[in-house]
Nucleic acid binder design. Structure first.
Lengths: 101, 101
DNA sequence: TCGATGCATAACCAAAAGGTTATCTAATGT
DNA sequence: ACATTAGATAACCTTTTGGTTATGCATCGA
């Protein structure tokens, strides 16, 4: 539904149609999104124009991005470490097998 | 919990401690995260080392980022439009009030 | 002024999320 | 070989999510 809001500003009724959803369901979603600060609402008369507030999403994006980059480093480091350990483990195993005989 | 995984690779038991959570609960979370492709698991003996897979998060980050930037344009455009309309509405109202008298 | 319209709210329901305890399996140390 | 330990799985319970219909309220057009 957020994705649909991407295609620009709409009123509540219009949002309900493409999803197989009733109007009250949409209202509920909008209330949640509004409390989460993800959308803005401008009432003009009896119609409510809804639009996405990009700020918090942008913030989330950069936050995740920072973490992802950090994790990528960790990931690669651990990966090479594990490969090295695996190689060593193989040689240890074979030496143990030699001992058994 | 993902945030805790940020601080590096761990095994399952270690993950349970800081949250007030039982071990099976953690196992459930990990299974979900694994199926979602957000973490990787390397079993070595009876211990499972868990680490974050940064790729999908990075993808999500850039996706959201692109949308956020796009929405920011929309947002600003609509904002200026609304301000203009509000100004016009005020002048129309006052002219109507003049008619009433 | 009065019916139609846009949306919110209330009351309710089914399914899913998220936790628990108890039990099982496989690897480990002794 | 046997007790211990890391983790998974099963069965169950409560809370949250996400939807519904019915109804209320304000605004608009005639």
């Amino acid at each position: 539904m957020l994705e649909q809001l991407a295609s620009g500003e709409t009123n509540v009724g219009t949002l309900a149609e493409p999803h197989a959803m009733s109007q009250p369901a949409v209202s509920k979603h909008l209330r949640v999104l509004e409390r989460a600060g993800l959308i803005r609402r401008a009432r003009q008369g009896r119609e409510h124009r809804i639009r996405v507030d990009p700020e918090p999403l942008e913030a989330a994006s950069t936050w995740i991005g920072r973490y992802a980059r950090f994790w990528k480093q960790e990931f690669d480091a651990v990966d090479t470490y594990l490969k090295a350990r695996a190689k060593q483990a193989r040689s240890e195993t074979s030496s143990k097998e030699r001992e058994k005989r």
